[in-house]
């Protein structure tokens, strides 16, 4: 995977040059945002299970999807849904820390639409759940860090769409 630091080092090395000007400014900005990122990742990691419960309550729980014939029925599929939402949250948190979305492309989105298609997992409710997750996460971590998480949760949404 790439992160925001290696993303500037690799092309600089191709040219044999030091990092300078705009590249160092980008790193400076990233370093300065580090405390915000680490704090948000800490909060999300500590409360992940409750973030997921609240996300489901806000988006899926009271719909047909949890009833017989729905894709979160029976319990085995309900649990699989929780697992996948937890993956989304965890990888979005990684990407937020790295300030780089490539880990989402490589480890989450690659082939996901096709997998969901073959398993019959409906895309629309999945997207609704991620939208709800954005709100829940922002409530927990605050507006600034929430905005940063939105970037990566939106990246998952657009990869699924």
């Amino acid at each position: 995977m790439q992160d925001t630091i290696t993303a500037v080092i690799n092309p600089a090395d191709e040219k044999g040059s030091y990092l300078e000007g705009a590249e160092l400014e980008a790193l400076q900005k990233y370093f300065q945002s580090g405390t915000l990122r680490v704090k948000a990742a800490t909060q999300i990691g500590e409360t992940a299970a409750s973030i997921i419960s609240e996300t489901v309550a806000k988006s899926l729980l009271y719909g047909d999807i949890t009833c017989p014939g729905g894709n979160m029925y029976p319990t085995r599929r309900y649990a699989a849904c929780l697992r996948d939402l937890t993956y989304f949250l965890r990888y979005a948190t990684y990407a937020m820390l790295a300030a780089d979305a490539s880990i989402l492309d490589e480890r989450v989105l690659n082939g996901l639409r096709e997998t969901y298609g073959s398993l019959g997992v409906p895309i629309e409710p999945t997207i609704q759940a991620i939208q709800a997750m954005k709100d829940v996460v922002t409530q927990r971590v605050g507006a600034d860090a929430g905005q940063e998480m939105d970037v990566y949760l939106d990246h998952i949404i657009s990869g699924l769409s």
Binding site: L24, F31, T35, R37, I44, R90, T93, L97
Partner: peptide, 26 residues
Amino acid sequence: RFLSSAELTKLQDFFGNGTTRISAAQ
């Protein structure tokens, strides 16, 4: 898993001296 608290502390330390890292590289 999510990052452990030791890993998060490590990152916090890294970000914390970012300005020094940049001046050293310059």
